[in-house]
Amino acid sequence: MNEMPNIEQANEMTASKISADKVQVYYGDTHAIKDVDIEIEPRTVTAFIGPSGCGKSTFLRTLNRMNDTIDICRVEGSIKIDGEDIYDPKVDPVQLRAKVGMVFQKPNPFPKSIYDNIAYGPRIHGLARNKSELDDIVSSSLQKAGLWEEVKNRLDEPGTGMSGGQQQRLCIARAIAVSPEVILMDEPCSALDPIATAKVEELIDELRENFTIVIVTHSMQQAARVSQRTAFFHLGVLVEEGPTQEIFTNPKDKRTQDYITGRFG
């Protein structure tokens, strides 16, 4: 995967990492997501923006089947990752989620030590054969998340005792530790102060080298800063999707224009 030349990414439809086709999501009788078609490219940051309740988080959660935990939620259409339909009955959502990691809105470290927070994923997936391999995974994940220097001397302290920004980076490190291919981020900075936000954004930009990242954000500035492509959702419909630059400077749809200029939302 890593040797794949970068030029190939943007060109062809077949090169896309995630491709969604006519996705419908229902919560009971509510039709929450309507006819969403989207191609998400590998090793780019794709931002989902839109007003509250537009369905962007819902759609994000369909990408690793986190919606399965909600009884009344029903998904139709097809979502393919690397050409494989993730809603195929043969797919085990647990295996899918190891491949498509997730970072949540509120930092949610386990009430365990920093080390155990990172090591939990590799342990349950059997990624390390012995203690030293596990140590390596923990340290490399923390390094990738830019947290290593801050925590290397207190790995046995509880993860919940860190600052909000550190906790969120710990959650990102935890997601990286199981070596996923895609990382979904659901408003990862909404609970953080501007300095912590800047750090997380910097991290997201670095992670782009190795991971496909989909980020839901309320902040249009953030979308502009971190993403290469942006998708605008409104009332459960994907209104417009394209290179971030274009969406913000030259939106095709009136609704997108209204939203990014602050007329609604």
């Binding site: 986190m66 190891a98 949610n108 386990f110 939990y120 994923g121 997936h125 935890r174 997601a175 530790a177």
Partner: peptide, 10 residues
Amino acid sequence: IRDAALGIGA
């Protein structure tokens, strides 16, 4: 907490 565990493939 449940989300966190499910999110990393537990």
